[in-house]
């Protein structure tokens, strides 16, 4: 039962990353986090990367669990990740970059160790 949770942490990290980038692509949230407005190309780039990460996390999930089970699981994970992003943004937006770094380190290390 336990090992099931570990690769899922990686997917959660990826989804968190993706949603955090989506949030940063929005004018208001970017300003809350960095105290300055984003330029237009910054916004576009963030959105692009966010989509990429979202697709990667869905396909990783489906790859590990099969499409039927994986896509259902993905929906659940994305809800949880969205909740975490919202909590970070509304209670301490300055810490979003820390969340992003944690997410990448978590996902990266699991990817390297072959955990996902």
């Amino acid at each position: 039962m336990m090992p099931e949770f570990i690769p899922m942490l990686g997917i959660l990290g990826l989804s968190y990353l993706s949603l955090a980038l989506f949030a940063l692509a929005k004018f208001g949230h970017f300003k809350d986090v960095f105290k300055r407005p984003p330029s237009q190309w910054q916004s576009r780039l963030l959105t692009l990367f966010a989509w990429l990460l979202l697709i990667i996390s869905l396909s990783t999930c489906a790859h590990g669990q099969g499409w039927a089970y994986g896509s259902i699981l993905f929906m659940g994970i994305i809800s949880l990740a969205a909740m975490l992003v919202i909590l970070t943004l509304s209670y301490s937006p300055r810490h979003l970059p820390i969340g992003i770094v944690t997410g990448s380190v978590l996902t990266g290390s699991l990817l390297l160790s072959g955990g996902i």
């Binding site: 039962m1 099931e4 899922m8 089970y69 699981l73 659940g76 994970i77 809800s79 949880l80 909740m83």
Partner: peptide
């Protein structure tokens, strides 16, 4: 089966529960 989630392993079950609370 989607409604009853009888197939769901612990993690997915927890996530369903979380969504239910939402």
């Amino acid at each position: 089966s989607l409604h009853t989630a009888r197939f769901a392993a612990p993690l997915l079950r927890i996530l369903f529960f979380f969504c239910g609370l939402l």
